[in-house]
Write a protein that binds this DNA or RNA. Sequence first.
DNA 1: AAACAAACTTGCATTTTGCAAGTTGCTGGA
DNA 2: TCCAGCAACTTGCAAAATGCAAGTTTGTTT
Lengths: 126, 126
Amino acid sequence: MWPDFRSQCPVASALDIVGDKWTLVVLRTIFAGRHRYGDLAEMPEAISSNILADRLERLESYGLITKAPYQQNPVRHEYRLTKRGADLLPVLQQLATWAARHIPGRWSAPRWFSEGKPEDFYPAKS
Amino acid sequence: MWPDFRSQCPVASALDIVGDKWTLVVLRTIFAGRHRYGDLAEMPEAISSNILADRLERLESYGLITKAPYQQNPVRHEYRLTKRGADLLPVLQQLATWAARHIPGRWSAPRWFSEGKPEDFYPAKS
DNA sequence: AAACAAACTTGCATTTTGCAAGTTGCTGGA
DNA sequence: TCCAGCAACTTGCAAAATGCAAGTTTGTTT
């Protein structure tokens, strides 16, 4: 379930889960409503396919997303946020707020993002 | 000043600055009042000295911290947050909140951290 | 003059990331 | 039936980032 943590510091531990170049970008894309591998692969940042596959697997193993079939013949799966994953929304919002304030020329975040709440992004039961 | 950004997405761009294993952990340690290289090197997560030196240099080049002498003979420097760096506090707070909620056994954050505001951590002029 | 200390720096091994091409399972058309 | 096509990965290898231990620099203390 969890990786080895560097310490019991909550900040450092959170970063042991999401502290790399791609994990939070993948989550952002799922928040944006892209749930299939192909949709995710087309994100504007051009992630490599092996990295995307690896991050989806890790996110699932950490319980931040689920992988479930949405059709048969052929079987296709979709990736959805769990409560644990959706609860990272405030982290993404604060990163976006910081970037908007300090880096010129960023896109402005859409309202569903800046005003959204974690509960808006996962089904009641998960 | 800035690196090459993967896109103009504010989330992805913020992560182009702080999205690695160590940058935010170093910033957390500076927020905690450790301002000298030696103090930082003793953080509980055991960062390598070359990585620490590299991150301090990058943080300075991005304008998130400053390096200034605090004594002569021998000259010694200290690292302080700028406004731009201190404004990352909400990101750290949200990471800590998430970890406290979802990862068992984390240390609980001290009050100066969870209730602090960016302005508490940089001198009025910087 | 020799030992000491802080703050890095260097060399090299290991791990992670990036890129391009290849594979698998299934479908729909000729 | 056979083959082109597509989604969703997987594989092999090169490049970059990270980790570890030892070394260097500059000035201080004894």
